[in-house]
């Protein structure tokens, strides 16, 4: 029989490594997915996810077992990803995936023999579009759309007021709608 999160957390707190491994196993996809969607980079996403679990391991003794585990993981993931993003920006200058770049890619596909975008390509382009948003809009958008969290849950994870979450999601979406417009058009055509 599989153990509950709480049991695994308590065991990990006592230094049981197998229990911690099971926790990682259980949540790795969620953490990795969030990191990838925030950074639009798989390699870096994996690095971030690894760092998240290492930090979790060290912070676990202070974790209260009556609190929810997943939101806590999301908060840590968002913080580490943000640090990465800032470092990357400092090192390589602003990396803003431009509208032109996405449109150019779309144009490539339009004239290719298989004019219908493959589902995977669509996802990659949407990822890029999200990664072109200002950081503060990116987290709530990703948490809302790929992780299907409510406004309230997002406010709790980001530790910001509910109204701020709503505003950021609204503004982020308006930006995305513009960026994704050509893709939507093409979808409608095909």
């Amino acid at each position: 029989m599989s153990k509950t999160d709480e049991e695994l957390i308590v065991l990990s707190q006592q230094g049981d490594e197998t229990a911690f491994a099971e926790l990682v196993e259980r949540y790795q996809n969620k953490v990795y997915t969030l990191a990838v969607h925030l950074l639009a980079d798989r390699e870096e996403g994996r690095d971030v996810a690894q760092e998240v679990f290492i930090r979790v391991y060290h912070a676990l003794p202070r974790f209260r077992t009556d609190a929810d585990f997943l939101p806590w993981l999301y908060t840590i993931t968002a913080n580490i990803a943000r640090d990465r993003w800032r470092r990357r920006k400092r090192e390589k200058g602003t990396i803003r995936v431009s509208l032109d770049e996405i449109n150019a890619e779309l144009a490539d596909h339009r004239f290719s023999p298989e004019s219908v975008l493959v589902k995977k390509d669509v996802s990659l382009m949407v990822e890029k579009a999200i990664a072109s948003l200002p950081w503060d809009y990116r987290i709530p958008i990703v948490l809302r759309h790929s992780h299907e969290l409510s406004y309230e849950e997002i406010a709790e994870i980001m530790k910001i007021p509910l109204n701020t979450v709503k505003t950021r999601i609204r503004r982020g979406r308006l930006l995305l709608k513009d960026i994704l417009a050509p893709m939507l058009e093409q979808r409608r055509d095909s």
Binding site: E25, N29, Y32, Q50, V122, L180
Partner: peptide, 23 residues
């Protein structure tokens, strides 16, 4: 609805050996 459909990105997997690399 179209935008929301696009934004619903699939779940990703970090690949095999992730837990081991963490440990």
């Amino acid at each position: 609805e179209g935008v929301f459909d696009l934004l619903k990105l699939p779940e990703e997997e970090p690949g095999p050996g992730f837990t081991k690399s963490v440990l």
